[in-house]
Design a protein around this nucleic acid. Structure first.
Length: 328
DNA sequence: CTAGATGATTCTGC
DNA sequence: GCAGAATCATCTAG
């Protein structure tokens, strides 16, 4: 019975209680089994050899087999399947989307470009910041991969170690392949939880990087003069109904080299600010009304057809009048 | 440095 | 889902 306890303890003691970083091969010496080239205390080797050559060994072994049979029966029900962890899947997806994991080239810059587009910047502006962003992302990516590699190596090393240990022990006590498999699965579960921590902290780092470099509010740039002019022209020439259709928005976006949602934002802001303080916008409104009228006159003169009105205003938002004090 | 302007976001109601 | 309103964060002129 004491031998059984000794052998069982040896398996238990080969199990690291903490993260694999704490596990060091030096501990092998104090374990029950041995891997190739591992130095065991001499008297222990002798005792082991004596045990292996003992005439009672076969009998002892069969007793152990019997006991094992009984124990396995009670363990059998405990075996649990581990379905793919949804948390890990989420982290994986995010890292893939951010270009941290997955294919080496393209992913990161694609994510950066997408983020830049979401931030509303024109494709060429802030290229310095974006290259900085990409450099930092690449750094994160490199750290992530080297850590991952380290963990994987440690995992396989440790798995090999345990398997050797079990194989060695299977000479003196019954260990089924199933049992070894279970041990390996347990090791992998342990390591995958460490991997999850790595993935989590990588995700956090990427989020911080993103918010620092690509937060739209931080990167706010005023539209250029020409873009503002185009938008204002449309707004004041459609003052009766300053709600551009989807097609009109697309065209305006194209003309101003901004996104459709930026056009929507601009009109939303403009409408509310115009309505709040019509007086303040009077001058601007007059300016664009004149501009539109002149343009229309030019067009009609060129076409020799003076039938269309200059501005299609009627009802809706209060149209500007030409009083010098700016009141309606 | 500051006040006002401006683009973006968030919340609410329809 | 869209528009209005409030608010935030940043830009810019003075």
């Amino acid at each position: 019975m004491s031998i059984l306890r000794l052998l069982d303890l040896s398996v238990v003691r080969c199990w690291p209680e903490e993260a694999p970083a704490q596990w060091t091969p030096q501990r092998e010496g104090e374990l029950g089994g041995s891997t190739a080239g591992c130095a065991l205390p001499l008297n222990f080797q002798h005792r082991k050899h004596a045990l292996n050559c003992h005439r009672m060994k076969p009998a002892l072994f069969s007793v152990l087999c019997e006991i094992k049979e009984k124990t396995v029966l009670s363990i059998r029900g405990v075996q649990e399947e581990d379905p793919p962890d949804p948390q890990i899947m989420r982290l994986d997806n995010m890292l893939l989307a951010e270009g941290v994991s997955g294919p080496e080239k393209g992913g990161g810059s694609a994510a950066a470009a997408a983020a830049a587009a979401a931030a509303g910047g024109s494709p060429n502006d802030g290229s310095i910041e974006h290259s900085d962003y990409r450099a930092k992302l690449a750094q994160i990516r490199q750290i992530y991969h080297s850590e991952l590699e380290k963990y994987e190596q440690a995992c396989s090393e440790f798995t090999n170690h345990v398997m050797n240990l079990l194989r060695e022990q299977s000479r003196t006590r019954p260990i089924s392949p199933k049992e070894i498999e279970r041990m390996v699965a347990i090791i992998h579960r342990k390591f995958s939880s460490i991997q999850m921590q790595l993935k989590q902290s990588t995700c956090e780092a990427v989020m911080i990087l993103r918010s620092r470099f690509l937060d739209a509010r931080r990167k706010r740039r005023n539209f250029n003069k020409q873009a503002t002019e185009v938008l204002n022209e449309y707004f004041y020439s459609h003052l009766s109904n300053p709600y551009p259709s989807e097609e009109a928005k697309e065209e305006l976006a194209k003309k101003c080299a901004i996104t459709v949602s930026q056009v929507s934002n601009w009109f939303g802001n403009k409408r509310i600010r115009y309505k709040k303080n019509i007086g303040k916008f009077q001058e601007e409104a007059n300016l664009y009304a004149v501009k539109t009228a002149v343009d229309a006159a030019n067009v009609s003169a060129q076409a020799s057809q003076a039938n269309s009105p200059a501005t299609p205003n009627s009802g809706g938002y209060p149209a500007p009048c030409y009083t010098p004090d700016g009141r309606l």
